[in-house]
C-alpha cells in the first residue's frame, strides 16, 4: 500500500471513532521528530567519520573539518572569550540597522497603506529596491560611509526595511473596513483609526515582516562584513577562510544561525504576548 492510501485509512479511522483507536502509539506520534533528528544525526556521523573511512588526498584532508573539530573550535571561541568582541560588533550593526528599519518601515507602511496616491507614487521605487540584492549597493555604500559600522548599518537597513514596509502595507490594506467605518462613525480621526483598528489588525503581517527582516538583516551583516569591514564576526570568518581554517568558518556560521534563531524566537514570544486578545489565539490555547 502506498503512503497516501494508508493515510486515508487512518484519517477515516480517527474521524470515525477516536476513543477506539489504540494504534496511536509512541511511534506514530513521534515518528516525524525521530526521523527528522535521526537524519541530522546520521549526517553528522557520516560527516564525522568520512575522513577515516574514505581515503582522501592529503590536501583535502587538511581542509576537511569534522563536526567534533567544529564543536571544539566553537567551545574554544566562547571559552577564551575571543568571540565576544567581533560578535558584539556584528550584533550592534545588526541591531542598529534593524532598529532604523523598524522606525522607518512601520510608519511608512501604514502611511502607504492608507494613502493610495502615495502608494502609487512610491511603488516603482519599492519594487525596484526590493527586487535588487542589497549587495549591489555595497561598493557605493563603502564609498559613502567608509569601511566601518555605518556602511554595515546601511546594508542591514536596506535589507530589513522592505519586508517590514511591504508586510505592514499588506496588513493595513487588509484591515477590516467594517471596523474602520464603525470607528469613523464615532468621530475618529486618521490617527485614531490607525491606533485603534489598523495597527492591531496588522499585527500578524508585521510579525511576518519582522521575521523576514531579521533573516535579511543577518545576511546583510554577513555580506557587509565579508567585503567591506575590518572587524566583526564575518571578518573573522573570511580571514579564517583565506587561511583554510574551515572549522572557524563553520563555527561562525553556527553563531550567525543561532543569532537568527534567537531573534526569531523573541519575535514569536512578542507576538504571542501581543496577540492574547485575538479570538483565534485564545481558542488555540
Amino acid at each position: 500500500m502506498t503512503e497516501i492510501q494508508a493515510a486515508d485509512v487512518e484519517i477515516a479511522a480517527t474521524t470515525a471513532d477516536d476513543a477506539g483507536a489504540p494504534r496511536k502509539g509512541v511511534w506514530r506520534r513521534f515518528e516525524p521528530t525521530i526521523l527528522g533528528t535521526g537524519t541530522i544525526v546520521l549526517l553528522l556521523l557520516v560527516w564525522e567519520f568520512l575522513p577515516r573511512i574514505v581515503p582522501m588526498k592529503e590536501g583535502t584532508k587538511l581542509f576537511f573539518a569534522v563536526p567534533s573539530q567544529i564543536a571544539g573550535t566553537l567551545w574554544d571561541m566562547f571559552a577564551t572569550g575571543m568571540i565576544w568582541a567581533p560578535l558584539g560588533v556584528s550584533a550592534s550593526a545588526f541591531a542598529i540597522g534593524l532598529a532604523f528599519a523598524i522606525v522607518a518601515g512601520l510608519p511608512l507602511g501604514i502611511l502607504l497603506g492608507r494613502s493610495a496616491t502615495l502608494d502609487a507614487m512610491l511603488d516603482p521605487f519599492i519594487t525596484a529596491f526590493n527586487a535588487t540584492p542589497r549587495l549591489v549597493f555595497l561598493p557605493l555604500l563603502l564609498l559613502w560611509f567608509g569601511i566601518g559600522l555605518w556602511s554595515k548599518v546601511a546594508v542591514v537597513f536596506l535589507g530589513a526595511l522592505f519586508p517590514l514596509l511591504i508586510n505592514t502595507y499588506e496588513g493595513v490594506r487588509n484591515a477590516d473596513k467594517l471596523l474602520i467605518n464603525v470607528v469613523r462613525s464615532f468621530g475618529a480621526k486618521e490617527w485614531d483609526i490607525a491606533r485603534l483598528v489598523v495597527v492591531p489588525n496588522s499585527l500578524p503581517y508585521i510579525v511576518v515582516g519582522l521575521r523576514l527582516a531579521i533573516g535579511r538583516a543577518v545576511l546583510g551583516v554577513v555580506v557587509a562584513e565579508f567585503f567591506g569591514s575590518e572587524d566583526g564576526l564575518g571578518v573573522v570568518m573570511v580571514r579564517a577562510a583565506s587561511r583554510f581554517q574551515v572549522d572557524v568558518v563553520f563555527a561562525g556560521l553556527i553563531v550567525f544561525a543561532a543569532l537568527s534563531l534567537l531573534m526569531t524566537g523573541l519575535v514569536k514570544l512578542l507576538e504571542d504576548r501581543m496577540s492574547r486578545w485575538r479570538p483565534e489565539h485564545v481558542n488555540a490555547n
Binding site: E3, A7, E31, P32, L35, G36, T37, G38, T39, I40, L43, G215, V218, L219, V222, V223, F226, G234, M237, V238, A241, S242, V246, V249, F250, G252, L253, I254, F256, A257, S260, L261
Partner: peptide
Amino acid sequence: VRVGYALDPLMTVFYASPLVALAPL
C-alpha cells in the same frame, strides 16, 4: 511522507542559516 519527515528539519536548518557565509569555502 516519511521522506518528508526525515528531510524537513535538515532543509529548514539549511534554509534558515545564512548560507552565503559559506561562500568563501
